[in-house]
């Protein structure tokens, strides 16, 4: 019977119905359009960076330090910036983890679910997450002046640590929040202390810690505004914490503002290197979330 009904349907369409069908189609059109625009934008960015950078990138650039006359187009590479970025990112991530893992445990294991302190703390970290890195940079700069520090590797590590702590905490917390309370209770009922129970928690949120770490590495390796004030810039690889250090984003920025084409080309090459690093980190994050979280209890 139903095929007969569907045959007679078109005749039943009222004016109002037609109008809503037209609206529906128009809305669909707009949606397809937005999706296409988004995809084109992503493709354009990736394509621009890769095609422009690949033309200029040479092996020498990623393996050598800036030579004499580097900023007027003479030979040399930006190894100083790559290593500098790695130093800052690795150190700040390590310190950030040492500080933020206990905070996440405290929020999720020690405090009750409806605790006021946990609410305020989460809100505060969300807010800190939103504070722009330029403000972190300005603040860290005043702190450094107050303590008599100069722009240095130490300063860069300091500001990046401050910057990523909220990211680390909030993204680990999102995972830890879904942690089944029953597991805690099971552990307690076997006579484990809260400290011992943490081992159980740790195993469950390990993928969360990994993705949070990658997220913050991605954020701190790409941050320019924070290190601008605090880390300075140098053409060599620092050998102590008190020396200035170059970073990849700043190296791109400085080289791009030079008038010489050769220097600008190197900026595009450096942009390609940075993009590749960031894309690898982001892919790795996706892989870890997909691969390892399926063993977890929900």
């Amino acid at each position: 019977m139903s095929w007969w009904l569907s045959l007679s349907k078109p005749r039943l369409k009222s004016k109002k119905m037609k109008k809503s069908i037209v609206k529906e189609q128009f809305a669909r059109l707009l949606m397809y359009l937005s999706i296409v625009i988004v995809l084109i934008l992503v493709a354009s960015i990736i394509w621009t960076i890769f095609s422009r950078g690949a033309k200029c990138l040479t092996w020498e650039m990623v393996t050598s330090l800036p030579g004499g006359g580097f900023y007027i187009g003479k030979e040399g590479g930006f190894l100083n910036a790559i290593v500098g970025s790695l130093y800052i990112v690795l150190a700040s991530t390590a310190i950030g983890l040492i500080i933020s893992v206990p905070v996440v445990f405290f929020l999720n294991v020690y405090l009750k679910t409806k605790s006021k302190l946990a609410y305020v703390a989460r809100l505060a970290f969300d807010v800190l997450f939103g504070i722009p890195s330029i403000v972190y940079g300005a603040f860290a700069f005043t702190l450094m002046i107050y303590f008599g520090l100069r722009t240095s590797l130490l300063g860069g590590i300091l500001v990046e640590t401050l910057l990523i702590i909220p990211i680390l905490i909030r993204s680990m917390d999102e995972v830890a929040k879904n942690f089944p309370r029953e597991l805690l209770e099971a552990s307690y009922s076997l006579g484990a202390t809260r400290w011992e129970t943490m081992g159980v928690v740790m195993r469950q949120i390990a993928p969360g810690i990994a993705t949070a770490t990658l997220l913050s590495v991605g954020r701190s390796i790409g941050d320019a505004a924070g290190v601008m004030f605090t880390a300075g810039f140098s053409d060599t690889i620092p050998t102590s914490l008190s020396q200035q250090v170059a970073t990849l984003p700043l190296s791109i920025f400085f080289q791009l503002s030079a008038p010489q084409i050769e220097v600008q080309n190197r900026a595009y090459a450096a942009a390609l290197v940075l993009t590749i690093i960031v894309l690898i980190i982001s892919l790795l994050g996706r892989f870890i979330t997909n691969r390892f979280s399926k063993h977890n209890l929900r």
Binding site: V38, L39, L41, V42, S44, I45, I46, T48, I49, R52, G218, I221, G222, D223, A224, A225, P249, I252, F253, L256, A267, Y268, A271, L274, T275, V278, L279, I281, S282, R286
Partner: peptide, 21 residues
């Protein structure tokens, strides 16, 4: 994944793209 890429790209890369495109 496309949105993931957008979210993960550093600010300076957007700047480079902006000046080029």
């Amino acid at each position: 994944p496309a949105l993931d890429i957008l979210a993960s790209l550093p600010s300076v890369i957007y700047g480079v793209w902006g000046t080029l495109v």
